[in-house]
């Protein structure tokens, strides 16, 4: 048995499975507690209930924060994808002075601690501009941190797009604008959708920056944070979390399907992963 394991990378298999358990442990627990008929988040489980899910609907602060978060996530993902389209096209198609530094700066938020992003925007908006915090300030921050992800996804789209396809359209009489509409856009559409979905998911889940920049209307994570202090609210948060996880998984699966379809359509080889 152990000889077989060693030969087929079996120990690595076992490790990989254990690692996945470690990765998924919190996510598996979530629905357990969301349907558990007890206000205490602990084992043993007490019985099945859907009460916590019903409790979600009667909280105006919660529904308000969901609405705020949705508006912010939609706006940020559209802005980030538009900026990402520009950056990805410039990066893949053109050589220009200052290309490295400019594209590098755009990607910086990927490695910058989020608190630095939050603090620095707070300083500019509040201490220097004296502007009030609102959903817009959160959108500014979220667009900033979503753009690098959009660039990474759309870079891949543009790289798998044969330049001569666009040239062929021009050659056949189309203008640059109609070429973009008839050839480029349909071929990078899966990348655009993936970018929108990923950016949406990031923004919806982002807490650290939102906490610094949120105005009178808190985002959903900021609301959740405020509720984590109250033990009796926790089961409702578990129910909310379950819904969020399910929604994230659906969105990400859609994004992955779109990404693969895009690669297949362009006839490229799958190299895996969003990042």
């Amino acid at each position: 048995m152990s000889a077989w394991l060693a030969k087929r990378g079996g120990w690595l298999w076992a490790y990989a499975v254990a690692y996945l358990v470690f990765l998924y442990a919190p996510i598996f627990l979530l629905p357990l507690f969301a349907f558990n008929d007890s206000t205490v988040i602990a084992f043993p489980l007490q019985g099945f209930t859907t009460e916590w899910f019903k409790g979600l609907t009667g909280v105006p602060a919660l529904t308000g924060s969901v609405k705020t978060s949705l508006i912010i996530a939609v706006t940020s993902s559209v802005l980030a994808t538009l900026l990402g389209l520009c950056a990805a096209r410039a990066g893949v198609r053109y050589r220009f002075p200052g290309k490295g530094p400019i594209l590098g700066l755009i990607m910086v938020p990927l490695v910058l601690p989020e608190i630095i992003v939050g603090v620095s925007l707070l300083v500019v908006i509040v201490s220097i501009l004296g502007a009030p915090l609102s959903s817009w300030t959160v959108i500014l921050g979220h667009t900033l941190i979503c753009t690098p992800f959009a660039v990474a996804i759309l870079n891949a789209s543009y790289q798998s797009l044969d330049t001569s396809l666009e040239e062929a359209a021009i050659d056949l009489g189309e203008t640059p604008a109609s070429t973009f509409r008839l050839v480029t856009l349909p071929l990078i559409m899966p990348g655009i959708v993936a970018s929108l979905l990923i950016s949406f998911t990031i923004s919806l889940d982002e807490f650290i920056i939102a906490f610094f920049l949120t105005g009178a209307e808190p985002t959903l994570p900021v609301y959740i944070w405020s509720q984590l202090r109250f033990p009796q609210k926790l089961p409702i948060i578990m129910a909310l979390g379950t819904i969020l996880v399910a929604a994230s998984v659906v969105l990400l699966t859609l994004a992955e399907i779109m990404r693969r379809r895009g690669l297949r359509r362009a006839g490229a080889k799958d190299t895996g992963g969003f990042l």
Binding site: D162, S164, L165, E167, A168, D171, L187, R265, A266
Partner: peptide, 11 residues
Amino acid sequence: MVFQSYAVFPH
């Protein structure tokens, strides 16, 4: 033009 990669629109 007939391109080296043919540039046949895959979509």
